[in-house]
Simulated assay, not measured.
Amino acid sequence: MLLASGDEVSCSAVLSSPLQGEIFVEAKATPGEVVVCALDGVGILVGKVTEVLPAGFTVDFMVKRNHRERVAARLEWHVVQADRSAQLRRAPRLVPFDRSVEVRLAETVVFAGTILNISISGAKITLRPNPGLFVGALVRIGSRLATVVRAIEGGIAVQFVEPFPADNFDERIRP
């Protein structure tokens, strides 16, 4: 976020519509001040501070009529993704009978892995050797594509590109 003073600060935002939102930031602003917000997945929005809150402020965004629909579509996409992620995160985890798995990076670099636990949407895997794969890397876990979502001690946590069907998900599962 860029404040009227020229200071650039990190923030988080909750947008109630393409025209309004709450900005959570440690910096101070005054009502009427113009701010520029660069929001991941939404874009750059210019707005005026309307109210100061204990943890930030509210903003009325100045979005041209022809851009409101596009911003609204991006906001709706984020709502759907958050709901989908929350549903997948609630999926039960289990430890499969056969825990060994190959983890492939770029289809040519292969690591031996051990599944710590697995759900229909992802898995935690230790790796030998631990390459310290970057969050966001696309990998193949057995025969399934997955994205590395975080590093764990000695390995990675991944989210599968396509979740397993829930009807045949049990300890005999093989990724």
Rank of each mutant, 00 (worst) to 15 (best):
G142E: 09
N117S: 13
I115E: 05
Q159I: 09
L116I: 15
V135L: 01
Q159T: 13
R140Y: 00
R144A: 05
R144Y: 02
V148H: 12
T114W: 09
G132N: 14
N117Q: 12
I141E: 08
G122E: 04
I120L: 11
R140G: 01
T114F: 10
E153N: 15
I125T: 08
G155T: 15
T147L: 11
T147K: 11
V139E: 00
A146L: 12
T147D: 10
I156L: 01
P131E: 04
A137R: 06
R128G: 01
V148P: 13
A151L: 02
V148L: 12
A157T: 14
G132M: 09
P129K: 03
K124W: 00
S119D: 05
I156V: 10
P129C: 01
G122N: 01
N117P: 11
S143M: 04
T114D: 14
S121Y: 06
I118F: 06
R128F: 12
G154N: 11
I118S: 06
L138V: 10
G155V: 15
S143Q: 03
G136M: 01
I118V: 15
I156W: 01
G132Y: 13
S121R: 03
G122R: 00
T147G: 09
S121A: 15
P129A: 01
V149G: 04
A137D: 10
Q159K: 14
L145M: 13
V135F: 05
L133S: 02
S119Q: 04
V148T: 14
R128V: 12
P129N: 00
E153W: 11
I120W: 05
S143L: 05
I152G: 02
K124G: 02
L138F: 05
I141D: 09
K124D: 01
A146P: 10
L116F: 10
K124P: 01
N130I: 08
K124A: 07
T147M: 09
R144C: 02
G142M: 07
Q159A: 14
Q159P: 07
A151F: 01
G155A: 13
A146G: 12
R128L: 12
A146N: 10
P129T: 00
I152Q: 04
T126P: 07
A151C: 07
Q159E: 15
E153S: 15
I125H: 06
V139M: 00
G132I: 14
K124V: 04
A123F: 14
L138I: 06
N117M: 12
L145K: 11
